[in-house]
Structures are given as structure tokens and as C-alpha cells.
Design a binder for these strands. Sequence first.
DNA 1: TTGTACGCGTTATCAA
DNA 2: TTGATAACGCGTACAA
Lengths: 339, 339
Amino acid sequence: MATIRDVARKAGVSVATVSYVINEGTRAVAPATRARVLQAMEALNYHPNASARQLAKQRSGAIGVVLAGLQSTSNFADAYFLGYIHGISYAAELYGHNVVLLTNYQGADKLTFLRQTIRSRLVDGFLLIGSSIPDEVVVSLHREKCPAVLIARRVPGHTVCSVQQDYFQGAYEATHHLTERGYRRIGFLGQALNFSYALERLQGYQKALSEAGLPYEAALVKIPMQSRDDPALEEVRALLAAGADALITDREIAVLNHLRALGVQVGDEVALVGLDESEAAAALDVPLTTLRPPKFALGRRAVEMLLDLIEGRTPEPLEATLPMELIVRRSSPPRPAMH
Amino acid sequence: MATIRDVARKAGVSVATVSYVINEGTRAVAPATRARVLQAMEALNYHPNASARQLAKQRSGAIGVVLAGLQSTSNFADAYFLGYIHGISYAAELYGHNVVLLTNYQGADKLTFLRQTIRSRLVDGFLLIGSSIPDEVVVSLHREKCPAVLIARRVPGHTVCSVQQDYFQGAYEATHHLTERGYRRIGFLGQALNFSYALERLQGYQKALSEAGLPYEAALVKIPMQSRDDPALEEVRALLAAGADALITDREIAVLNHLRALGVQVGDEVALVGLDESEAAAALDVPLTTLRPPKFALGRRAVEMLLDLIEGRTPEPLEATLPMELIVRRSSPPRPAMH
DNA sequence: TTGTACGCGTTATCAA
DNA sequence: TTGATAACGCGTACAA
């Protein structure tokens, strides 16, 4: 394999000059010299050795993507993180970086694993997707000035670089959409408020209600005291009994099934809007109106922030929030004039 | 940052000795020396520089995963390749390699892009998922002895390393499942035979029929002359008219919709088995019996074959085929005794 | 059993 | 504008 020295010899210049030709802009090179060098590179089919460049630069030029369920397999089953990866790989290429997938199936201690990865300069920084890296680990990395950006997550009490969808705006849009379409009794099935996004959603819902001049009715809101997976059938039944003509929930599939089990025609009798776009939402026999998280944009933004950190700049803002988009489908038609 | 020299100095040995301690097994090191070295590494919080290792080894220790729609976005929308990635990342970690995502959104010439990537030693070899890299490019790489393994694909007329699901066995299992459950008139909706898998599926179907003592009836088989996306409603209607009590197809969602449009109760009146597991198959209101491609296993096997190639071994066999698994769901119940 | 020296590309320095 | 050189950090063939 041809080396930079071979090229230099062939072009009759020094290795430095060849290097400055390769790395345009570092030092001016006379056009004639430059042409000779390029020609020599071509003739020798020369390609700079990536490892040598990384070594000399003290940079790997790579971004490490740490997948949520580091050692579990579950995250590969549902593809929630694919959209992020798309944005990440797109932006990484745009800015001349590579993307390395970091897994830890072996289950090594997470902090040790990440520290080792960054210290060995395998990657220049991390993108942490999802929630499987404990807060303490994130905080430790942050303290050690390890470049890292959290995706779809924050660490309460610490200002760690992160990108996140706008839960407040999303719930607001969803609710607003329903009030605009004539719904008056909008039920809300939320999560326990120990996660910040649960509260933000509730507040978005409240704001849209009050803007529409609708009262906030406790009977129309179901929020569990403790985190749970899906809402219970009973909760849905109670909302219907309270006269709900529409439901908003982040567990749209489960609620849809509950509604079916209760014999309710979704869309015709009761509108349903999902806050947490499940991939299947569009393919169901009643396509669901849902929020779409801006995953591509989040991934892209996360890369930009990470590159800022890597280059020693401070991203602005440190915690980025991007708006969600409401995808209107058949589960929330304009409300018939009377019921 | 501590270097290998610092460690050597601290431990009172040469850098070579430190290196041989790090790379266990390369050369024997006296236990006492070894202990001193390890202690020095610990004390200095030393981590070998990945780039320097790669450079010295003339190996990147990384596998490049070339995603199908290199510059399109579509592949990120449907997650068909995620299962492969899972198997790939699992096996890569197992064998001490990294996974680099290779995209080419910018749309550089594919062959140039791949050649450059391999020659720069950014990765030691490629895994090519899906079909967006043209056959000629694959053949060129193969001729240039570039380590590469095709996933879910072959190049007709050339023996390029590849892994693939067993379409024949899959269609056989699917058909056999139906004959065993008492179905006698099994309709087959296939693809144009210019793709090898289309023929293999048809043959699997035929074998299962003949094993069950059922005749092959042309009226029960719909194969278009030219490739098309989804089967037409008319094709489904014709199969029903021919008395089909079950349907087998690789476009299960489309056929399901057609059956619905024709007012047929899937499962109760006509069984439906899919050959090309769509992610949604399980979530539908009539969960579909489908084949599950062994994506994890294929990804893993592909890595093993690629590492063989990288190490100069010859994978055996060069074209690997892994069995599919039939997931029985509600769309193919045991057939009622009479119709 | 251990040490020495070389190779890779970038970049800073000094000289021409 | 260009050249010469050294350092960066590791693995490993070869010498001792």
C-alpha cells in the first residue's frame, strides 16, 4: 500500500506538503504543486490511513451511540430509536464523522465501559439514547467533562446536555386539535407525575383547555399514583362514564383496545389521540391521530451539540427542546354537531 | 494522558513488555513482571490508545455496516434491518470488534465510497444489508478481494459470501402447517420468478402439497409475469372463486386488506399465512400466522463469516442459509371439519 | 526473558 | 511557498 512518503517522492515534494494538500486549508499550497501531488496520489491509488490520521490528530472522528438497553435485546424488537439513528448518521456524515455502535451485552460495569471507551479515544463523545444508563453514571461522565449528549431524556437536578421533544407543546397541540374539532369533554390518561414529562403533558392539556374556555374537571383526568404500564380498563370506563367525548393518552394502543373491549366505536363515538406515536398507529384499522416525535431532528441536533462539546464550544441551549408534530388521522374526526 | 512509555517507566520494564502484558498470549511474560505492569497501569489510569493500536496492527478492528438505502431515508422508516443490526452488534462485541455505520447520504459513487473506506482501513470489511448496492459493485469488491458479506441477498452467477433465510424451507413449513391443520385448497400469491427467492418459495409450497397428497392446481397459484408490489384485489378474488380455503403470500398485509374488502372473515372463513413477517403482523386485530426470518442469527452468522474473510480463512459454506421459524397466530386455526 | 527500532499521517517549528 | 524534522502511541519483528 502506498504511503504518504511514496506520494511525496513521486510528486517530488515533502511529506508535509502532501499532508497539507490532503488537509485543505491547513496551509496554502501553490496550485501547481497541489496538482502534482494530486496526480501522484491518483497514480499510486493512495488513500490516507484512517488510524494514522486519528492518531496524529488525537481524535477518532467518531461518535459513539450508546443504545438504551445496552445489554438487553428488547430495544431491538421495538424500533423506537431508529429515527434517532437516522438523524444521527445523517448529521454525522454531514460533519465528517463516523458513527460507532456501542453495545455492552457482556454487561460490563457501565461507567467503566464508557470511561474506557472514551479514554482509549475510540470515539470522541457519546450520544446516550433512552434511559438505561443510570443517572449517576451520566452525572459522573458529566463531571469528568466527557463529551456526551442525552437523547430523549434529562437528569433532574443537573444541567447535562440533552435534546428532547416538547411534551408540553405536544399535549397542547393534541388537546387544541380536539377542542377545535368541537370536543368538549376531553379525558386525559396520564402517567405518574414522578417523571417530568408526565407533568409537562398535563400542563399542555390544561393550557389548551383553558384557552378553549373549558373547565379542568378532575373526573376527566386519570393519573396513577405510581408508575404503571398501561391504563386499566376501569380507568377508561370511568372516563366514559364521566361523559368523555374524546381521550388523550400516551398509551394509545392499550386504550384503543380497552375502548374496543367496551364496545365503543373509536372515532365515531369517542375520539382518541395518542401522545406517544407507536409505529403501528397508522396501520391500525382505525388509524390513530398521534403526535410524532421529531426523532430525525433530535438526532441531528444531538450530533451538533456533541460536536460543539468535542470542539470545546458550549452548545446553546444546553437542553434543547424540539416541537412535536400532530399527525391527524381518522380517530379524531370533527365532532358531529350533537351526540 | 498516560502512555505505554509511562507505564513501562513506572513498572521498570520496556514498552514491549507492557505491550505483551496488554495483549495477553502474544508473548510470555513472567508473572512477577506482569503483576508490576498491571499495577502501574492501574496507578496511572492507563488506557491504550485505540488509534495507535489500530495503526500498529494495520487493522481497525471494526466492521462496516452498509445500510441498504445508502442515501435514501426509507429504510429508516421501516425497521426491517434492525434485527440484523442486533445480531451483528452482538457478534461483533463477542469477537472484539466494533460496528461502524456506513451511510452515503451525499450520494458519492458507491464503489468509490466503499473502496475508499476499505483502503483507508476505517473498517476491516463490510456487511452489505439489502439490495441497494448494485450487483456490479458487489462483484467488483469481490474481485478486489475486499472482505464483504451480503445479508439477505445473493448475486446470481457469482459465489459471493452471503447469508440468507431459507425461502424454500419457509414456504414449505407454512404450507405444511396448513395441510396439517386440514386445509385442502391452499392458494399461493407469489412474486415474479425473476428473483430466485420467488421460485424457492413456490417450490417449498409444491413440496408440502405433494407430501400431503394434494394436487398442484394452477388455478390456486397467482404469479405475476412482472414484478409488482402488492397482489391485486382481483387475484385474491380469483383464488377465492377457485375455492381456496387458505392463502399463502409474502404480501400478507395487502392480502389481509383485500380479504377484508371482500367481506371475508380471515381465520374463520379463510386462513392466511404470511411469508414475510411484517412487524405489524402480531398487532393486527387478526394476528397473522407468519414466518419469522432469523435476522439475529443471520446477522451473527454474517459477522462470523466476515471475520473469517478478514483473517484470511474461507467461510464454510460461502453461501449460508438459515431456517425460518413459523409463528402460529390466529389467522390459521385448525380447519373446521366441514365448510 | 527483555529491549530497540520502525511504521503510519498530522502539525508545529525552523530554515531556506 | 516549501522542506526537513520531531512527536504523537502502539504492536511486533528482530536483536540481544
